[in-house]
């Protein structure tokens, strides 16, 4: 029977306030980034000057973040996909332990992880000063996401049976991994990759500690601009960040929707 109008109105109000709370500041920031003077409002005119200034000041951070994200992706794929298969095919106490340890970096705050890395390897100057130091942190933090995504898909498609089928046709273990397992894991690899790249581009908690003045990333630059630049430049920089991250977030939403749809088909 019809919903109570008071309850409906309350729920609608909460929903709209929540949506406004999330979206209004983002839209404000986008507008501020292309407005001549934020304090006078949009009527002061629109401009791309601030974006150009951001480009002049911070372009290297953008390229560094993209490179780091791709590097992180490459390492997580190389380490994560084979390991995901190994962990799925032999469920046992040892693999449970490995899984537990590998997922720990997600449960422990990034700040603490960064601190640990610095204490352990900060003394190796060349490593400490290089992008590779940040890369290690990003891999540590994103690896569990890649593992989870790939393992979930491999478990869902019952990769053991697929492999036994391939084995019965004479495929060697390595052939089975390359020709059967990796293709079967593709949806998980895609979802995991999108997640890894998105998280790496936005990572701050670890990166703030791991970076040096010579290796700032995009979020590090953002924090710098929030602290020391005028609001329009901070906003324009945030706008650039949104342009990079929003397509990734939309892709994650779509990938998730596709997967849910196929899940539903699989289990009527």
């Amino acid at each position: 029977m019809g919903t109570n109008p008071l309850v409906f109105a309350f729920q609608l109000l909460v929903t709209l306030i929540a949506a406004a709370f999330l979206v209004v500041p983002a839209v404000t920031s986008i507008l501020a980034g292309v407005t001549v003077n934020y304090f006078q409002g949009v009527r002061s005119g629109l401009t791309l000057d601030w974006v150009a200034q951001v480009w002049g000041l911070y372009a290297p951070t953008i390229f560094r973040s993209i490179a780091l994200a791709l590097g992180t992706l490459a390492v997580t794929l190389l380490i994560g996909v084979p390991a995901a298969w190994a962990l799925v095919r032999k469920p046992g106490r040892l693999t449970r332990l490995v899984e537990e340890i590998v997922t720990l970096p997600v449960a422990i705050p990034g700040l603490a992880l960064a601190l640990a890395l610095i204490l352990a390897y900060g003394g190796i100057r060349a490593f400490r000063a290089s992008d590779a130091f940040i890369l290690v942190g990003h891999v540590l933090y994103t690896l569990p996401f890649m593992l989870r995504a790939v393992m979930a898909v491999l478990a869902a498609v019952d990769v053991r049976t697929l492999e036994e089928g391939a084995a019965s046709l004479g495929a060697s273990p390595w052939q089975r991994f390359i020709q059967v397992v990796v293709p079967a894991a593709r949806p998980g690899i895609l979802a995991g990759s999108l997640m890894v790249v998105t998280l790496s581009i936005g990572e701050f908690n670890l990166t703030w500690m791991l970076h040096t003045p010579l290796t700032p990333t995009l979020p590090v630059g953002l924090a710098d601009s929030y602290a020391s630049m005028r609001l329009e430049i901070a906003s324009a920089y945030t706008l650039v960040f949104f342009l990079m991250i929003v397509p990734l977030l939309l892709a994650i939403q779509f990938a998730g929707r596709d997967r849910r749809a196929t899940d539903r088909k699989a289990r009527p």
Binding site: P82, L104, S172
Partner: peptide
């Protein structure tokens, strides 16, 4: 041979986690 391959493929993960998570943790 498949089990052996599984252990081999698990090695990079193990090495990474050992070097960059467990050892730093001990240091902390």
């Amino acid at each position: 041979s498949a089990d052996r391959l599984a252990w081999i493929l698990l090695l990079p993960l193990g090495a990474f986690v050992l070097a960059f998570f467990l050892l730093p943790l001990v240091r902390v």
